[in-house]
Simulated scan of single mutants.
Amino acid sequence: MRTYVLWGDVLEVRRTALLIAGAATLGLVAGTCTGYLVQADREPTKLPSLSQPTLPQARGEEPEPLSAAQDRRVKTDGDLRKLLLKKPAGAQDADWLPGDGWLDLAAYADTYEKPDQMFGDLIGNEFRRAAVTGWESGTTTLEIRLVQFRQEEALAAAASVDNNRHWADAEGATESWTLPGTGNGMAYVHTEPEREAGYLPVYSAEAHAWRGDIAMEIWVYGAEPISKKKIMDLAKRQMERL
């Protein structure tokens, strides 16, 4: 008896739950139908326009473009020769340099020991142009080059400086100093002259630095040792113009 009553209660509970669930379902259906009928009798709600009103623009003066002193691209995209140091008073023009002050791709590659290989390397490094100046003063000769790269794929100006620094460091009897304000710019004095039969000994110094897309090269040669002060001063003044 006890078992029967328990199961009967359980069955009754289940039956009641089913009846309640059925009633709820009917109520939901009825409510939904009523909602549809009410909505059908209403006027359609107007949707907002998809277009937005034009916002008023702020008014003010147009900013003036930066001057060449403020925007270095104005300088470096112009005549690169104007950024070279000027020949000092009393010095003579270097007769081995091109008269127009430009070195094209072939002429610049020809300044290296392996011009054919360098020609291909410069094409790969996106060589753009090179400006050059130089002069002779007493027994000293000097040459300055500003080599510009397009730099669409890589920082070729920095790579060019690193290459020249590598070879300068590789020479024996060499002293070197960092160029202030240039990052990794360096100046070198080779304390032992180059000797060749039939010629006077030649001392040399050089400096290499870069800024933006331009690599600076300075080469100084003389019958007497080149001082640190001289090469550092030249490099500092030239970099200040970039």
Rank of each mutant, 00 (worst) to 15 (best):
92 Q>P: 03
118 M>Q: 15
86 K>G: 12
122 L>G: 05
123 I>F: 01
99 G>T: 12
109 A>K: 02
82 K>F: 02
90 G>Y: 09
128 R>E: 13
114 K>T: 04
132 V>M: 07
95 D>K: 14
94 A>C: 02
101 G>E: 03
129 R>M: 06
129 R>K: 14
118 M>L: 08
79 D>M: 04
83 L>I: 00
90 G>Q: 08
106 A>L: 07
108 Y>A: 03
124 G>A: 09
100 D>S: 08
122 L>P: 08
132 V>W: 03
105 L>F: 07
89 A>V: 10
81 R>N: 07
126 E>K: 09
103 L>C: 06
79 D>A: 06
97 L>F: 02
86 K>P: 01
125 N>D: 10
131 A>M: 11
121 D>N: 14
116 D>K: 15
122 L>Q: 07
121 D>S: 13
95 D>N: 03
89 A>L: 11
124 G>F: 06
90 G>E: 03
76 T>S: 15
111 T>A: 10
109 A>Y: 02
124 G>R: 14
126 E>A: 04
80 L>M: 11
128 R>M: 06
112 Y>F: 15
76 T>A: 11
120 G>H: 11
130 A>G: 05
116 D>N: 12
113 E>A: 13
122 L>M: 13
118 M>T: 14
108 Y>E: 03
95 D>R: 10
87 K>C: 00
105 L>D: 03
122 L>Y: 09
81 R>P: 05
78 G>S: 07
119 F>G: 01
98 P>M: 04
77 D>Q: 14
111 T>I: 10
109 A>I: 02
120 G>V: 01
113 E>L: 11
92 Q>K: 15
120 G>E: 10
83 L>D: 01
108 Y>H: 13
106 A>C: 00
120 G>F: 08
117 Q>A: 13
92 Q>R: 15
122 L>A: 05
84 L>A: 05
114 K>P: 00
77 D>N: 15
113 E>Y: 06
121 D>Q: 14
108 Y>G: 02
91 A>M: 07
118 M>N: 04
93 D>M: 02
115 P>G: 11
117 Q>C: 00
120 G>W: 04
76 T>P: 10
101 G>M: 08
129 R>C: 02
130 A>P: 05
114 K>M: 03
112 Y>K: 13
112 Y>T: 07
90 G>M: 06
93 D>N: 12
79 D>S: 05
87 K>P: 01
129 R>L: 05
100 D>Y: 08
115 P>W: 13
109 A>C: 06
98 P>A: 02
80 L>D: 04
94 A>W: 01
86 K>A: 12
100 D>T: 02
81 R>V: 01
132 V>L: 07
93 D>I: 02
102 W>R: 15
121 D>G: 07
86 K>Q: 14
100 D>A: 05
113 E>V: 06
120 G>T: 06
